[in-house]
């Protein structure tokens, strides 16, 4: 998906850079090798771009101009309609799947508009109505109370302990991060996938991790207001 956009935009002066937020880079390997990107495809195992660029979910993107200045802050970066949205929910589905699909359908559908905005910026540069002035970029970035800073520190401590001692040492620190900044889905889904996805298998998206984290993806989504609140919707 991003490779196709890159091929379209590269002649217009835009380089796509994808960054995988994966504490275990090997989990990203099958996706990267399938996509066979010719653009830079990087790994951020510590989720550093969360604090450096304001990333809090995936997919999210920032736009950077030729001088190295942000012209849009971190926002949801869907560029096509999710196939999950078109699934008709029937009585055959289990309750759990019904709940997940209902909230997925409630997520704002911004893919087409966001993709069109990117193309407009590629063609017009700073004259694009979607390219913002530096003060607007800062003003439109998300608030960062002290709790979010503490969450980042706790998440990083967990990542360090994961590397040095293993997963069990990280869990308490990751739980603290989740409690301090519940709207950061990268902290939660990164930790949860280590419980819910067996080695070598594709990611378990429903992340039912009650035994360790006392919640699941869908319960956590509903606690925070449902699918409508799940993404940082681009204000285009």
């Amino acid at each position: 998906m991003w490779q196709a956009l890159y091929e379209e935009l590269e002649p217009k002066g835009v380089t796509v850079v994808t960054v995988a937020l994966d504490i275990d880079p090997e989990k990203a390997r099958r996706w990267i090798e399938t996509a066979a990107p010719t653009h830079p495809s990087l790994i951020d195992s510590q989720h550093r771009i969360d604090e450096l660029l304001g990333i809090s979910n995936v997919p999210m993107a920032v736009w950077i101009d030729e001088s190295g200045t942000l012209v849009r802050p971190a926002e949801a970066a869907a560029i096509k309609v999710s196939a999950l949205r078109s699934i008709e929910i029937t009585d055959d589905f289990g309750e759990s799947l019904k709940r997940v699909l209902t909230e997925v359908k409630a997520m704002p559908d911004t893919g087409d508009a966001y993709r069109a905005a990117i193309v407009d910026w590629a063609e017009k540069g700073s004259d694009s109505e979607f390219a913002l002035e530096p003060h607007e970029v800062i003003a439109r970035s998300r608030p960062r109370p002290k709790e979010h800073s503490e969450a980042a520190a706790c998440f990083a401590m967990g990542c360090h302990l994961f590397e040095t001692e293993g997963k069990d040492a990280a869990i308490e620190w990751w739980k603290r991060a989740h409690a301090l900044y519940p709207e950061n889905w990268t902290y939660k889904r990164q930790a949860w996938t280590l419980e819910s996805t067996p080695d070598g298998e594709a990611s378990d998206l429903s992340q039912e991790v009650e035994a360790v984290y006392g919640t699941s993806w869908i319960d956590s989504v509903l606690e925070l207001g449902g699918g409508a609140n799940y993404a940082v919707v681009p204000d285009l």
Binding site: L5, K27, A28, R30, P40, I49, P59, G68
Partner: peptide, 19 residues
């Protein structure tokens, strides 16, 4: 890879994950 090596081009930096 240094992000600064792309100075002079526009960059769309996209965060994604396997999970």
């Amino acid at each position: 890879f240094k992000l600064s090596s792309l100075h002079g081009r526009k960059v769309l930096l996209v965060a994604w994950a396997s999970w």
